[in-house]
Design a protein around this nucleic acid. Structure first.
Lengths: 197, 197, 197, 197
DNA sequence: GATGAATGAGCATTCATTCAT
DNA sequence: AATGAATGAATGCTCATTCAT
């Protein structure tokens, strides 16, 4: 499916706006990044922003979507491995994405998620994990009586806690290392009763 | 140490300002709470706020100080008990304080802590835990080779993660219950190697 | 005079634009009705509006023209009747047209007419009345010394006042009833000296 | 009751804002007069406007209040005169006030009153007239069976119609002359049945 | 210490209009 | 003739902070 030159142009403008916003978000934070900042950095007129987004807020959702894309695709391939390994791999991937996007962006994300009782993001992440666990049950890697819900909540909470702590003391916390040591120490004993050998 | 009537008056004004700010913070969040809101709610003139605080931001620090007061006093009494019990008690107390202050205030706290690389708060909480663990070592409840630092970081991270998750989905997460089940499942096995029997 | 298919299409587009504008004018008022609103409601692109009208304002003139069309045709047939009856009939028709177009549209009309010293509309209405009175003189229903100008101004003023009052308190004023009682009470005595019996 | 220097200053600022607004309203109309225009013309900062008025709209009410002040005080003194004379005097005064305030201001007033179904102003004017008529009944200048309501509505409608027409064609209409000739021709015959001789 | 008027930068958002395709 | 992306001026309003009284 080809794009006309015009469609290409608008896609490009959209892209530039999103990238500029990402940079600014990292530098200044959501509240201090004005729409004007974004358009100036993008080299377009202020009004142009509103040709692509209805509200300033919308650009945050956009950024999230991009970052977490791909993760959900991996779920399937992970579902057939050894549970302890595949869960670890998933958690590490998740945190790696966050780490890659720089700590300031993560901070904004924390602030945004915590601000309004904006449940969606948490729910989404929780459901991805549930999908993974259910996949492992289906492929008979885990027993049918595995407490899917409790397990996914526990793991999401763990991951969120790590991100949060990382935001606060990035020098002290290495998210990937932390999640690995969590897996070493606790994950195995948590899932052991439900693993099919 | 006595206060003159004048000193009492100004102490009272300060008190009222802080209380009003706490209420408003809960209702509206930091950004949407204006200095004007605070002074109106306190029944004083707008300018009066600046007789007590240099910047709007300052009042947040004040609030934090108050909430976590008292907790540090308990440390000593806890240091002589059974490690698993005393650590659990401390963590439960910590979360109980947060829960008591309502979810909206916790949200603001999360937002604030995450915003600037405001390390202080995290450090402070982490140090309290270290004090507790060191106390337990001193009273020979825990072995000298207990990895104080790793353990305190792990526990702080856990607690912060729970608070964060609670802010996002208060219906799903009961912080006290969650920390208890964390202690049941994981705390014991974590500290077991270091417990003096 | 036939239209080609193309001419028909463009005539239709024009029509749709005008109709959409009329609806929106009623609902939102002139200032709050954007060109974008009009084109969206019409199912055409924003730019299309400017193929048919030079400025947003122009569409108002268009609407006015349409509404008052037809009224001028009746003048001739009315000119040969009993003066008191034909003038009353004319005034009632006039107000009926306004009433039919809903009070919100009338309000916009009032606002528009009052805004700029937009004399045209008033002049036009006044001249129609003069035509009627002159017709009645010509058909010898009224005497030649009838003060055409004074009379038409007086009547136009009366009618405009009723519309205006109706816009303000539509519950209190029934335009048609009001004009009828005006005719009952005052019209007869006003024109009596000039009626040929 | 004295005013402190400070109170005097704020009263003065308020005054200047209102005066500037009145001038601008006359020149540009409500929509095209920005808050910025008002404050610039007043020589104060933009924010200052909002120390005195909550919304831009509020200044219109303020202006109306001022213009119509005084009229209501006259009611009492008029109530004891010959009905036809006192009513005429009242109507002439009313229109004189409008005429004095320049046609462009009257236009804005018409636009404003017609915009929202802003009934208040009409009601207020209608009630003033009712007060006058009731006063005349009380002082036995008019009979008790005078149809107060019908009469006041009829007269308010008449006056509003004249103002409206004047806004549209100020060259054609002289409001005071028009109301006088209305009184000559119609008022007497309207109230005659109810006058006590 | 208390007051509250004044400040003015700052912001999100709207919208009529243009114009290259 | 139709499109719709781009424009950028304009606007109402907020608010932390200052400072003369």
């Amino acid at each position: 499916m080809k794009m006309t030159k015009r469609e290409l142009d608008t896609a490009k403008t959209r892209e530039i706006l999103i990238e500029s916003a990402e940079n600014l978000l990292q530098q200044k934070g959501y509240e201090k990044m004005s729409v004007s900042d974004i358009t100036k950095a993008s080299g377009v007129a202020k009004g142009t922003f509103y040709n692509y987004f209805n509200k300033k807020e919308e650009i945050i959702f956009e950024l999230n979507k991009r970052h977490m894309n791909g993760l959900s695709n991996k779920i399937k391939s992970l579902s057939v491995d050894d549970p302890s390994i595949s869960i670890r791999r998933y958690l590490v991937d998740f945190l790696q994405i966050i780490v890659n996007s720089k700590v300031n962006l993560a901070r904004q994300w924390v602030r945004f998620v915590a601000a309004s009782s904006n449940t969606e993001k948490w729910q989404y992440d929780n459901e991805l994990l549930q999908k993974l666990i259910k996949g492992l049950i289906k492929s008979e890697r885990l027993k049918p009586n595995t407490p899917v819900n409790e397990l996914s909540i526990l793991l999401t909470t763990e991951v969120y806690g790590i991100i949060f702590s990382w935001c606060i003391t990035p020098e002290t916390i290495d998210p990937v290392k932390t999640i690995n040591s969590f897996c070493d120490l606790q994950l195995n004993s948590l899932i052991e009763p439900y693993v099919n050998k």
